Amino acid sequence: MPQQLDPLPDDWERALAVVAHPDDLEYGCAAAVAAWTDAGREVTYLMVTRGEAGIDTLDPARAARVREREQRDSAAVVGVTAVEFLDHPDGVVEYGTALRRDIAAAIRRHRPELLITLNPEDTWGGTYWNTPDHRAVGRAVLDAAGDAGNRWIFPDTEAKPWNGVRWVAVAGSDAPTHAVDVTGTLERGVQSLTRHRAYIEALTGEDPETYARNLLEGFARETAERFADRLAVPFRLYPR
């Protein structure tokens, strides 16, 4: 029997999801976001880039507009109305104090108890090399959780320090520890990813909804084997 996953804690009210690109959350955890917003929790999205380098057939300026629109549409499907962009350059995001400061400032503004980000490790499943943007942003989120609460680090941000982050949940981890039941919200996760139509059509010749459904239902069924046969989204949870 594979090691079973624990339910993600649900005694929180506000979450901030910080990822590198439009679509990162839809590939990982939008169905979980739908479950949270259905329960009355507040979730805000923060994109470090606009994904302008992600569609080979579109020049960056046009791609940025398309991907921002698709991200806002996809967020709305799962009950998220607040979507922000930091405008770091897509494909060349640099880990460092500038990125940590921007994320810490957002944490201080939104005052989340839960932070969500994407796999910061070198690989996906030990097989596929992760992108530099994912690695940089994921690591910066983990570090900024502490930065945000320290009044001597980045003291010039507009909002006051916030030391209320209780967990950082990493989606797409090779070593998940917890999961969220998405039995009732998986369909909205599929529809949320489908909203990234321009991106998916440039990525594959498959119908976007078929592509999204096969991918996300497959992930959820795989996680169910470690979560009492319930369709679920896995996370690696770092308590603070």
Rank of each mutant, 00 (worst) to 15 (best):
A31G: 15
A32T: 15
V33T: 14
A35H: 10
T37L: 07
G40R: 10
G40W: 11
R41D: 11
T44P: 04
L46S: 08
M47N: 10
M47H: 14
V48F: 02
R50I: 08
G51D: 06
G54P: 04
L58W: 11
R62Y: 02
A64P: 00
R69K: 06
Q71V: 02
R72K: 06
R72F: 01
D73W: 03
S74A: 14
S74L: 03
V77C: 03
V80R: 00
A82F: 02
A82W: 05
F85W: 04
D90W: 00
V93K: 00
E94D: 08
Y95N: 04
T97Y: 04
T97E: 13
A98Q: 11
L99I: 06
L99N: 08
R100L: 05
R100C: 04
R109T: 15
P112G: 09
L114P: 01
I116L: 15
T117A: 08
T117S: 10
E121A: 15
E121L: 14
T123D: 11
G126V: 13
T127E: 13
N130C: 12
P132W: 01
D133A: 09
R135C: 08
V137M: 09
V137C: 05
G138V: 08
L142I: 15
D143L: 09
A144E: 11
D147P: 00
R151F: 08
F154W: 09
